[in-house]
Design a protein around this nucleic acid. Structure first.
Length: 486
RNA sequence: GGGCGGGUCACCUAGAGGCAGGGUGGUGGACUGCAGAUCCACAUACGCGGGUUCAAAUCCCGCCCCGCCCUCCA
C-alpha cells in the first residue's frame, strides 16, 4: 500500500487515485528566462522518480508540467536583451527542456504554456469576478483573499500572520495587502492580450489553476512542486480553483526539499548558482541522478563536491555488479526446478531485495532506503557469482531484469555509456592498431596479455594506465582480462 | 516575529520508544606480479541541557546551530 505525505494534512496518507489505475499528476514547471539550474534538476528528478514508481506499480500516469512564459522577470530580461518577451522565453524553454533531457528525465506528457491559455485564464477570472471572489481595479483584477475561508490551510498559517507579512507595491491597486493579482493591466513594452478589463496579462498563479484543471479535471490526484512554492503560489492556486468551481482542487500535495550548495543556500546574490549544463560538464548525468535519489525527496539536499564524488563511487558499485550479471544473462524462461540450493538461495535474496525496495518506495517514496535494497541485491549477487563458476544463465537474466526494473525507477542505468572513441584511437595509433575502438581495446588486451606472460609489467601497466585515462578500466581475472567503461 | 523541515561515524544518507541500517572513505585479511573488482573482518555517530519511561536518536520542555517560506523562486 503506497503512502504519500500530503502537505495539506501534514501526514502520510494512503494513496487512492480518483480513477482506479490512473494517476493525474501536475508539477509546477519553470519560469523560462534563464537556463535551468541544479535546483530545478533536483525537483524534476524527484518527481520523475515518483512518476516512475507509480508506473512501476501499474498506474497509468498522466503527467502535466507547465511552462511559465509570461512573467515580470521574463519581460525584464527580454527588454534588456532587446527581444520579444515570448520569443525570449520560448528560447529558454527549449534550452531548459533540452537540459532536462540530457539529465535523463522522462518527459512529461504535456508541457502547456501560459501564453497559450490566455482565454482559459480569462474565463476563470471572469467566474471569480462573477462570484465576487475577485474585484476589478483600474484594469487590474485581484483575488480577495478574505473571501476564501480556507486560505492559509496548505501553508498552515493563520490569516493575521499572512496579513502581517503582506505588502502593497506602489504600482498595485489592490484593496488589501494580502490580495493577489489575477490580471494585470498592460504597461508599455509588455506583452498584452485583450480582456474584458482592457488589455493586459495574467498574474502568475492563475495559469496553474487553469491548466491543471483543464487537462486533469477537478479534483485531480497529485500536485507537486518545490517547497518554496507552498506559499503563496500553491495557496493561491487552491483559492482560485476552489473558489471558481466550488469544489476540491487537488487531493495530494507533494513538495520537494530545497537544494543547497556546499551547505549554503543557492542564490544569485551569493553567486553560487550552478547551472545544470555546467554540472553536466563536470558530472555524468547518472551520477547526478544517483545523487538526487540518495536523498529523500522532502529533505533538503546539499550539492557538494564531496557528496557528488561519493555518489559517483557508490554508483560504480551498482554498475559493476549489473555488468557482471549481463555477462552471464541469457534470455529464457527460468525453471526453478533446475536450480540447486545455492541458486535457490540467491533467488530468495532477489525476492527479499525486491520486497524491501517496494516497502521503501511505498513509504512516501523513500529512495535512500530503496537504494539500500539495491546494495543488498548487489552484495548477494557478488557472493553468488563468486561461488558459482558457471551460474545458471536464466537465473542471471532473471536477476538482471529485476535489478534493472528497480534501478530504472530510481532513474539509474538508462543509457549506454559511450566509449571515448577518439582517445582510444589515439592509444591505438601508438601501438600501431587501427579499427573500431572496441577492436583496439581487444587488441591492446592481447598485447598486454603477452607482456604479462613475459613478465614485462612495465608495458602491461602502461597499457592499463593509458586505457584508464581514456575511460576504460581493465580487470584481470586469472588468464582472462575484462574491460569496462568507467 | 510567524510557519515548516533539519542537526546521526571522517563524508553522504535511512530510522522515529526496545542491540542505530546502507553507501563512500579508512584499516586488516583472502585473491593478485601489481592494480582493480569482489568477499570477510574491524573501527568511528544520534547538537546541548533537563524531564517522562522498565527503556529515548525517537516523546515533552528549554537552548544553540542550519535551511526553506512569509506576495510572483523548483
Amino acid at each position: 500500500m503506497l503512502k504519500i505525505y500530503n502537505t495539506l494534512t501534514r501526514q502520510k496518507e494512503p494513496f487512492i487515485p480518483m480513477e482506479e489505475g490512473i494517476v493525474k499528476l501536475y508539477v509546477c514547471g519553470m519560469t523560462t528566462y534563464s537556463d535551468a539550474h541544479i535546483g530545478h534538476a533536483r525537483t524534476y528528478v524527484a518527481f520523475d522518480i515518483i512518476r516512475r514508481y507509480l508506473e512501476y506499480k501499474g498506474y497509468k500516469v498522466f503527467y502535466v508540467q507547465n511552462i511559465t512564459d509570461i512573467d515580470d522577470k521574463i519581460i525584464k530580461a527580454a527588454n534588456e536583451a532587446g527581444m520579444d518577451a515570448l520569443e525570449y522565453s520560448a528560447y529558454y524553454a527549449r534550452r531548459c527542456l533540452e537540459d532536462m533531457n540530457k539529465l535523463g528525465i522522462k518527459p512529461a506528457d504535456l508541457y502547456p504554456k501560459a501564453s497559450e491559455h490566455i482565454n482559459d485564464m480569462i474565463e476563470m477570472i471572469e467566474k471569480l469576478v462573477e462570484k465576487k471572489f475577485a474585484y476589478v481595479a483600474n484594469g487590474d483584477v485581484y483575488f480577495s483573499v478574505e473571501k476564501f475561508r480556507d486560505y492559509g490551510r496548505l501553508s498552515n498559517q493563520k490569516m493575521d500572520e499572512i496579513k502581517a507579512g503582506a505588502r502593497i507595491k506602489p504600482e498595485e491597486k489592490k484593496r488589501k495587502p494580502e490580495d493577489f493579482a489575477l490580471w494585470k493591466a498592460a504597461k508599455p513594452g509588455e506583452p498584452k492580450w485583450k480582456s474584458p478589463w482592457g488589455y493586459g496579462r495574467p498574474g502568475w498563479h492563475i495559469e496553474c489553476s487553469v491548466m491543471s484543471s483543464k487537462y486533469l479535471g477537478m479534483p485531480f490526484d497529485v500536485h507537486g512542486g518545490g517547497a518554496d512554492l507552498i506559499f503563496p503560489h500553491h495557496e493561491n492556486e487552491i483559492a482560485q480553483a476552489e473558489a471558481a468551481y466550488g469544489r476540491r482542487f487537488v487531493n495530494y500535495w507533494l513538495h520537494s526539499g530545497m537544494l543547497k550548495v556546499e551547505g549554503e543556500k543557492m542564490s544569485k546574490s551569493l553567486g553560487n548558482v550552478i547551472l545544470l549544463r555546467e554540472a553536466l560538464k563536470k558530472w555524468r548525468s547518472d551520477t547526478l541522478r544517483f545523487f538526487f535519489a540518495s536523498y529523500h525527496y522532502r529533505s533538503p539536499a546539499d550539492f557538494s563536491e564531496e557528496a557528488l564524488k561519493n555518489a559517483e563511487n557508490s554508483l560504480k558499485r551498482l554498475r559493476v555488479a549489473k555488468e557482471k550479471l549481463e555477462e552471464f544473462a541469457e534470455e529464457g524462461k527460468l525453471n526453478e526446478k533446475e536450480l540447486d540450493e545455492v541458486e535457490r538461495e540467491y533467488l530468495r535474496e532477489i525476492k527479499t531485495a525486491k520486497r524491501k525496495f517496494e516497502e521503501a518506495m511505498d513509504d512516501d517514496f523513500n529512495t535512500p532506503k530503496a537504494l539500500e535494497s539495491l546494495f543488498d541485491f548487489v552484495k548477494e549477487t557478488n557472493k553468488f557469482l563468486m561461488e558459482k563458476e558457471k551460474p545458471n544463465r536464466k537465473l542471471c537474466n532473471h536477476a538482471l531484469k529485476e535489478f534493472m526494473r528497480m534501478a530504472h525507477v530510481l532513474t539509474l542505468f538508462q543509457e549506454e555509456k559511450a566509449i571515448n572513441e577518439k582517445a582510444i584511437r589515439k592509444i591505438g595509433e601508438k601501438y600501431g592498431i587501427k579499427g573500431e575502438a572496441k577492436e583496439i581495446i581487444e587488441e591492446l588486451i592481447e598485447i598486454r596479455k603477452k607482456a604479462r606472460k613475459e613478465k614485462n609489467y612495465k608495458v602491461a601497466d602502461a597499457i592499463r594506465d593509458e586505457l584508464k585515462k581514456a575511460g576504460i578500466e581493465l580487470e584481470d581475472m586469472g588468464e582472462e582480462t575484462k574491460w569496462r567503461i568507467i
